[in-house]
């Protein structure tokens, strides 16, 4: 009898693990889409912050203030339920997109994380020595060449650690999509719990999946940081300096 109970346990855990693993593409897709969106938008915000026009700078500053000053959960509810209650959104051409909870979660995450990424990029931009820009100017480099050869490569290297932290945060934030009916890893875990009343083992399975995802991302970021570190030559002297 004990054996039968144990078998039932193993079957339940295997079924649950399978259901959770099947939801990984949803979590991963949401992360990748909003990471790309937020990075592009964040770059745009930094460009706007350094723009000559005061209203453009003001809009960028307001955007960052709004999205960094309120919880992502509230932003997700605002995009999903709040905007859907407005007639122009519901009758407008974008309703098929807004009707989809996954799109709404991605949109909210893109807007929110773009504000954090903009702050990271701005910090990196400020850390580039002014002398280098002046030297580039003195060499007669144009705006685009300056950006391509001097500013962007250094920004990338300087911003990477903090930018990587933001990406890890984003992986974790995808779990909030479950609050608006998205069946991601957390959503599936909650559904299993609501129907089986088993809490601890199901949550541990889900937590394990997230730990795997964040761990893999962290390892990837470490590798990228080493590659971009000018004091480390490729392969040979790895870990020698620092």
């Amino acid at each position: 009898m004990g054996g039968a109970a144990m078998n039932a346990d193993v079957t339940f855990l295997a079924d649950t693990a399978l259901a959770i693993v099947r939801a990984v593409p949803v979590t991963l897709g949401l992360f990748v889409a909003s990471a790309i969106g937020a990075s592009l938008l964040g770059g745009g915000l930094v460009a706007a912050l350094t723009a000559g026009l005061a209203p453009v700078r003001g809009i960028a500053r307001g955007w960052i203030f709004l999205f960094r000053g309120t919880p992502l959960l509230l932003q997700i509810f605002m995009v999903y339920y709040g905007l859907a209650a407005l007639g122009p959104v519901r009758q407008g051409p974008f309703w098929p997109a807004f009707r989809d909870p996954l799109f709404c979660a991605g949109l909210a995450m893109t807007c929110c994380c773009s504000a954090y990424i903009a702050e990271v990029l701005r910090g990196a931009l400020a850390a580039i020595p002014a002398g280098q820009i002046e030297a580039a100017l003195a060499c007669g480099m144009g705006r685009v060449t300056r950006l391509r050869l001097i500013v962007l490569p250094q920004m990338l290297r300087l911003a990477l650690p903090a930018y990587g932290n933001e990406l890890v945060m984003m992986v974790k934030s995808t779990s909030l999509a479950s609050t608006i009916t998205v069946l991601d890893v957390t959503g599936v875990a909650q559904q299993v719990i609501a129907h089986s009343y088993r809490t601890l083992d199901v949550f541990c399975l889900a937590a394990g999946v997230y730990l795997g995802l964040t761990g893999a991302l962290t390892a990837l970021l470490r590798w990228a940081e080493r590659r971009l570190d000018p004091t480390v030559s490729d392969g040979a002297g790895e870990g020698a300096s620092r």
Binding site: V168, K172, L176, T179, T186, A189, Q190, A206, A207, T214
Partner: peptide, 13 residues
Amino acid sequence: IMRGVPELLVVLL
């Protein structure tokens, strides 16, 4: 663990 698992999951747990 705490920095790798979503905060929502910790609250739910």
